[in-house]
Design a protein around this nucleic acid. Sequence first.
DNA 1: CTGTCAAGACGTACAGTGTACGGAACCTGA
DNA 2: TCAGGTTCCGTACACTGTACGTCTTGACAG
Lengths: 220, 220
Amino acid sequence: MSEFPSDGVSDRAPLSPERIELAALALIEREGLGGFSIRKLAAALGCKAMSIYHYYPSKGHLLDALVDQALADLLPLPPAELGWRTRLRQAALDWRRMALRRPGLFLFLATHRMNTPLALRWLDDLLALVRGGCASEEEAARLFRAIGYFLAGAGLDETAGYARGPSTVTPVPPEALARDYPNVTAAARWFAPDEREATFLRGLDALLDGWAAQRPDATQ
Amino acid sequence: MSEFPSDGVSDRAPLSPERIELAALALIEREGLGGFSIRKLAAALGCKAMSIYHYYPSKGHLLDALVDQALADLLPLPPAELGWRTRLRQAALDWRRMALRRPGLFLFLATHRMNTPLALRWLDDLLALVRGGCASEEEAARLFRAIGYFLAGAGLDETAGYARGPSTVTPVPPEALARDYPNVTAAARWFAPDEREATFLRGLDALLDGWAAQRPDATQ
DNA sequence: CTGTCAAGACGTACAGTGTACGGAACCTGA
DNA sequence: TCAGGTTCCGTACACTGTACGTCTTGACAG
């Protein structure tokens, strides 16, 4: 609020939601979601754990604020001039870029219900976009859901390395993998990070093409 | 191992991987993944926490064993006589049914890398199945991935209520939702549990149809 | 200049977590 | 009877989220 901090104050910057959320995002990307704790966040901020609870009633509320920050990058949606298909593709690509920019947070983001006003705003706008290219509310709702499934799964795959959750089981050694699982071995090349954008677009386009090609009367 | 427990033994059944995993699965479905702890599992088994560590080196290893149990339901894959498309659809429906049978575990299952031999066996067989209907290794790998994205997202959506993770933020009240988010409100009907199987099949078929329709030479 | 007061930061404490380590109880084979 | 190995348990440690009460500090009223 005051532009100049009065000089008697301690040399640490005062706490604020912006500062806390910025540090939290950095900590999550550095340590992973599992390594993120209020105490570590407080240490990074140069304050004590309980001070953070003056701004957020619980860790969950803080994480929801971080989700809002991430979703804010996705608004507004691509402009209407681009046309339906292009807007949808662009929104999907924006989502993917957001996931790759915040791989640590993404697991939480994709896994939890979005209840905040900003998240609902984004959902509502997106539904309006999808509706524009569909013959009915039902078609729009189902296509929205199907695309959402694809986007959630893709984002999780591309950010899974950052989970850092429960300890990993001892992996199968490479030579056993090559011997016993030839199809996995053969496919591994196309699972590499460099290939993921192509797979993402191929799958998204297939979904949209296939959706348009189906007769919309058959609900079964 | 011994068919009859010797009679001097305590009246509690002895620990075993089967008993532990059964109780763990039940506990996870009862309390959710977040409410699952080694101490609670021990209490349910009538033993102490550290006894469980005699069978699993860590909680993560136990969870991996549970994933194996869940994936075991998916093997063998649907028989070859059914034809490619039908087999793929059936395998996808089997996956969905497994998710709905173990909603509490599914979050962990979909979120963590599958490294165990059984999981790799399942992946390898599934890749072989997909390969049978594709023109190249590349096509098969990408289609497999795209289907996997869809399946992971769908399963998460259908089991999200069981997350019970971090506390939920205070939700937007219904009248504000109806006023400010008309598209969400309009679509809600098609998001209901009863509609999910139809959405699932519609999306899956769209993806498969669209994939087949695309020219396989264009990697872009 | 001084007293009041609320907001912000902190200290302490509690219940719960995974799990390392060492010891106790038991079953089995000699 | 005794040795040895398999199970199981008691204790302890580091860490978590967070409830509750206290202290500091800066702004403002008189």
